[in-house]
C-alpha cells in the first residue's frame, strides 16, 4: 500500500474553551433515556416471552391459525399443531423460540441504526453529540467483538427468510379452521407485522448496498441502479421502520398470547 504524502499530524495542541463534558444547554439526555427505556423494556419482555414456551399459538380449537412471531418457524417437536415443516430439532427441551430468536436479534444488534442508538444510549460513546465520551480510550469497531458488526449482511439474509416465513404465517391466518376463509383482527395484526418487518429489512443499509450501492457505475448497471433508486427512499425511513417494527412485533406476540390464553377474543371482521 502506497501512502501519497507522509504528512504527520501534530498531536497535543492546547484546546480552547472550558474543560467540561459539554456546554449544551438543551435537554440532550432525553433521547438516550427514551432509547434505553424502550430497548430495555423490549429486551425484558422478549426474554420473558421466549422462555414462556406456552400460549404462542392459537389453533383449530379456537378456529384460528395464529402464531407469535417470536416462535415462528416453530421447529421443535413440542410445537405440536404449530410445528413448521418436516424438519425438527427433536428432543429440544427448551422453548422453541430460543432456536430462532438469535437471527432477528442479530439483525437488529448489527443494524447501523440500532448501533447508532445503543452506542449513544447504553455505551455513552458518546451519549449525545458534543457531549463528552464516557471512556478514556476508544477503538471503535476495529477489534473483537465489535468488528463482528461487519456480519450485518448475513443477518440481513436471515432476516429475509424470516420475513418470508412471517408472511406465510400472515397468509395462513386468513384460514380459519372449521369456518373457512375470513379476516380477523389477528389476521390484520400478523399482516401489519410482516409488512413492517419487510419495510425494516428492505430499508436496511446492507440491502441498499447489495441492490446497487456497491457498483462503480450506475450507467453500466441499469437494473441495479433501478433497484437502488427504489430502496434509497426507503432507506431514509429506516429509523421509522426500525422502531415501528420493533414495537409491533412485541405487540403481535402480546396479542397472540392474550388470545391463546383466553384472556382476549380475536374478533372476526368478515
Amino acid at each position: 500500500m502506497t501512502a501519497v504524502h507522509e504528512s504527520k499530524v501534530q498531536l497535543g495542541g492546547v484546546r480552547g474553551g472550558p474543560d467540561v463534558a459539554t456546554l449544551r444547554q438543551d435537554r440532550w439526555w432525553i433521547q438516550p433515556v427514551v432509547t434505553v427505556s424502550i430497548l430495555t423494556a423490549f429486551i425484558i419482555y422478549s426474554t420473558w416471552a421466549a422462555f414462556q414456551n406456552k400460549n404462542y399459538y392459537v389453533g383449530a380449537q379456537m378456529h384460528r391459525d395464529l402464531i407469535s412471531p417470536f416462535y415462528s418457524p416453530c421447529l421443535a417437536n413440542s410445537c405440536g399443531a404449530a410445528k413448521f415443516g418436516a424438519f425438527s430439532f427433536g428432543n429440544w427441551a427448551l422453548s422453541p423460540a430460543l432456536l430462532i430468536l438469535i437471527f432477528p436479534l442479530g439483525f437488529r444488534l448489527t443494524c447501523y441504526y440500532y448501533r447508532r442508538s445503543y452506542y449513544r444510549a447504553f455505551w455513552w460513546a458518546p451519549p449525545a453529540c458534543d457531549v463528552g465520551d464516557a471512556h478514556n480510550s476508544y477503538s471503535g469497531e476495529t477489534r473483537f467483538p465489535l468488528i463482528m458488526q461487519n456480519m450485518h449482511r448475513y443477518f440481513f439474509y436471515a432476516g429475509l427468510v424470516f420475513n418470508a416465513l412471517l408472511t406465510y404465517d400472515a397468509i395462513r391466518a386468513f384460514n380459519q379452521p372449521g369456518i373457512g376463509f375470513g379476516v380477523t383482527v389477528g389476521t390484520l395484526v400478523l399482516i401489519v407485522n410482516a409488512t413492517l418487518l419487510w419495510g425494516y429489512s428492505l430499508s436496511c443499509h446492507a440491502c441498499r448496498h447489495l441492490c446497487g450501492g456497491q457498483v462503480k457505475s450506475f450507467k453500466a448497471h441499469p437494473i441495479r441502479y433501478r433497484f437502488w433508486k427504489i430502496v434509497t427512499p426507503l432507506n431514509a425511513k429506516h429509523m421509522n421502520f426500525a422502531w415501528a417494527s420493533l414495537l409491533f412485533v412485541a405487540f403481535t406476540d402480546v396479542y397472540v398470547r392474550l388470545v391463546a390464553s383466553g384472556a382476549w377474543t380475536d374478533f372476526r371482521l368478515f
Binding site: R116, Y119, C129, G140, E141, T142, K216, S217, K219
Partner: peptide
C-alpha cells in the same frame, strides 16, 4: 466510475474507517 484505484484497504487501514461508530453527529 473513472477511478481505477481500489481504496477499500486504504480507508480501512490508513483512514481509520472502522473507528467510526456511526453516531451520525
Amino acid at each position: 466510475p473513472l477511478d481505477t484505484n481500489d481504496r477499500r484497504d486504504f480507508v480501512r487501514e490508513e483512514a481509520g474507517l472502522g473507528m467510526c461508530n456511526i453516531t451520525k453527529c
